[in-house]
């Protein structure tokens, strides 16, 4: 157990013009789910600068392999096999080690294993759609999956989500908590998507677009995509005494 009760430096304020606004009417569900009053700021206390840590001992051997982690023995998920890899960094470019990364996605046909997903593409009996891993000491992470299919969704009359993987990332402080999505380089649906377009700056959208990385591919097995994740940074090197023992 590590507990850190010494007040530590504040995180850099969130750049809320880089993130999507809460109210984005072209993404219709946001209309009734967006707070309309101003957020209240008060700096950071220990309530914001501390957060839960997760140990490598909780990660199972197949947790980072969506091709196999729901498959029957001897079977594997259907689809284009891909390796997704990258690093978790902070805004200062420092690696963020030993943080939990969780991911979920539709199957190769664009169908989620969820009772509320009625899309006509079939379920894959060997694909569950969730995985997780921890970043290493250098912030690096990797997992194997199948490339998810695009899917239609009820928003406008003919809106389609680009192929994407959902990511949930912990930092070392609860104020770093982040959920986002990863897109695939070259997908023509990216600029058409109302959820992507909740982000205003094309450079921010580009930051969520993974690049094909032939050097990391596994010949005769899987292509690779590179996706770095950046969490909020802070003014001091906060966590140098907390890298071990997770």
């Amino acid at each position: 157990m590590k507990s850190n009760q010494t007040p530590i430096a504040n995180f850099f304020p969130r750049d809320r013009s880089w993130h999507p606004k809460a109210y984005t009417p072209d993404y219709k569900t946001s209309v009734l789910r967006s707070p309309s009053r101003a957020l209240i700021a008060f700096g950071n206390s220990l309530s914001e600068t501390t957060g839960p840590a997760f140990g490598h001992d909780m990660i199972g051997p197949l947790d980072n392999d969506l091709v196999l982690n729901f498959a029957s023995p001897g079977m594997s998920a259907i689809g284009e096999r891909v390796i997704v890899h990258g690093r978790v960094l902070d805004e200062r470019g420092q690696p963020v080690p030993n943080v939990l990364i969780e991911f979920w996605q539709a199957n190769a046909g664009g169908r989620y294993r969820h009772k509320k997903d009625g899309y006509l593409a079939p379920l894959d009996p060997n694909f569950g759609g969730c995985g997780r891993t921890l970043s290493g000491d250098d912030g690096a992470f990797a997992f194997r999956t199948i490339r998810p299919g695009p899917y239609p969704w009820p928003n406008g009359p003919n809106d389609w989500r680009p192929a994407h993987i959902h990511f949930s990332v912990f930092g070392h402080g609860f104020a770093q908590r982040l959920i986002t999505q990863m897109y695939f380089e070259g997908d023509p649906l990216i600029p058409r998507c109302p959820i992507v377009r909740t982000i205003n700056d094309p450079k921010a959208i580009d930051q969520l677009t993974a690049r094909l990385d032939m050097n990391a591919s596994a010949p005769m097995d899987a292509l690779a995509y590179r996706f770095d994740i950046v969490l909020r940074g802070s003014r001091s090197t906060l966590f140098e005494n907390r890298l071990e023992g997770n």
Partner: peptide
């Protein structure tokens, strides 16, 4: 001080329970 930008957020979507 901030050479990188925080990854922009995207909604957790309707199926966040699958992942978490």
């Amino acid at each position: 001080l901030y050479p990188l930008k925080e990854s922009p957020s995207q909604t957790a979507g309707p199926y966040v329970h699958i992942g978490l």
